[in-house]
Design a protein around this nucleic acid. Sequence first.
RNA 1: GGCUUCGUAGCUUAACUGGAUAGAGCACCUGACUACGGAUCAGGAGGUUGCAGGUUCGAAUCCUGCCGAGGUCACCA
Length: 616
Amino acid sequence: MDIINIIQEEVTTTIKVLYGFDVNPNDLIINVTKKEFEGDYTLVTFPFTKLAKKAPQVIAQEIGEVITKNNKYFLSFNVIKGFLNVTISDDYWKQFLNDIIANKDYGKSTFHGKKALVEFSSPNTNKPLHLGHIRNILLGWSTSQILEAAGYEVVKVQIINDRGIAICKSMIAWEKFGNNATPSDMNMKSDHFVGHWYVTFEKKFQEEYKIWQSSPEAKKYLEEKNVKEENIDAFFKKDKNNYFNNFSKIGAEAKEMLRAWEAGDEKVRSLWQKMNNWVYEGFDVTYDNLGVSFDKLYYESNTYLLGKDIIENGLKDKIFYKKEDGSVWIDLEDAKLDHKLVLRSDGTSVYMTQDIGTAHQRYENHQSEKMIYVVADEQNYHFQALFAILQKLGEPYAKGLHHLSYGMVNLPSGRMKSREGTVVDADDLMQEVINEAKKASQAIGSISDMPEEEQELIFKQIGLAALKFFIIKVNPVRSMIFDPSESLDLQGQTGPSIQYAAVRVKSAIRKAGEKYNSESSNEYSNIQKSEKEVLLTLHQFPTIIREAAENYNPSDIANYCYTLAKAYNKFWASGLSMLNAESDEAGAFRLKMSAATLQVLTLGMQLLGIEIPERM
RNA sequence: GGCUUCGUAGCUUAACUGGAUAGAGCACCUGACUACGGAUCAGGAGGUUGCAGGUUCGAAUCCUGCCGAGGUCACCA
């Protein structure tokens, strides 16, 4: 049984006996004792002063005396103000180590049969993935892993935004300027190829816009809009969308293509198919390199009409209302939101309509209690509204919806802007960190004896560990500044330094071989401070996983892994030898503790999508 | 402007959800490989937790008001 539970139980009954009142065991405040004090766990006794009518230090003293007498696991205690510091006996810790080693799933919860669906990535198909997607994908992936470790059956999905004006822009540009070129003709990764035509479209559009700005038509337009001479530049900058919709030739072509697509025009559909397939081919490579996959793909082209029937029904039930112009709305003021449009006056759907439909469809497909949307915080309001609507519709899954919102990734120079060419490409970035890992590794030379292929694999594992850890360690709610040079760091609070701690253990275990009889670890006495710190940290693992799952927060796992690696490194350097231990018991114990650390680090990092190499 | 999220060392960040002297990493300075892998460890310097009030045994954390930064307020997605 878990020592925290034991403390809770003993303290609860002791309080009842000594002072005659009940406390909820879960309300007790029990922390790991701070390093500067003696003890393993600390009970805070301030909250009991009123009911016990005694000073906190008196309560602590009294409780301490009773529980150390009653339970063999409590070796000793000391009291400082309202803090009762309890030292746990070595017997408990030795048993604890045996338990970890015996249970390869230590830290995970047992499967409880509930299902969680996690949506992440969900890119547009007009250009390649970038740094923003990487944060999204890493959060989605690790959240999925964490939920699974917390006992859920997890379905990983993405909805691919494969239709709309954006992809039409790529298509038009390719058709007009592409001369039927293929990605291999231009020696480009196929999603980058499609992105290239998207950029081309924007460039041509801008050129056209620029020329138009000095045309008679533009002059008339400016007069109509009453724009003053000195504001013209700013006006044109802001008015881009109006130009696109009302004047642009190339814009009209793109819009016409979208219409043709919606009408099912065969030529357009086949070009669309071709472009999208190029993009998917490229995405697959990126996903594969990142080490992520999905269980089910949804395509917007199949789902964008969903939801209309739900709106119709809801209209009958008076959940929605119709305005005179025929548009349909919902009043969300009681949810502290405003009125939201759900159908346009011409009867076509908006984003919200589609999302209502897909949520419904997904529940029908998977019956998942939880549905998690990993989407950047710029859409906070949208998801609040969506969830409120589904609530009003009485959807059975409405209470299990969660928006895993995360902050934008900014560069030291500010926000990424495609127009300014500051978007950090996902493929480039991965390549860069892998190269950096390679350089660093070759400088050390510790794996230079290995076959080149194996080395390359390890460089990749290290580089990706650096990138992934750098991003995941930040709490999702915070927007983060991504400094490329810092992400290449392999030392300090980084993925590679955690890998390194684990790799050293592997090396030591290999060398130890059969040197010690594992059973004799039970005879070890006098666990040292640096050993205890590792044990206490190992002990937190199941709680950390549970909390990370509850809070949908992978950064908890990342920070935990670092804490554990750090505690272990400290032990490693403490002078307590494993291979040349003072006794068989000590060696066996330390080896077992190291193996347990390796096991936990491996699982913890796996939850983040990070692998531990054999050597590095 | 309304709503909303965030403000912690020069920089990137943590704090078990109200607990002890706010903990790390980077950068800077000083040390440690004839011990199991130095991508490490030991130590130094660096903080009025944006500001001002309040709540209480106790506040980075909760409340109020300011200040600053992001996001959002489309018949776009």
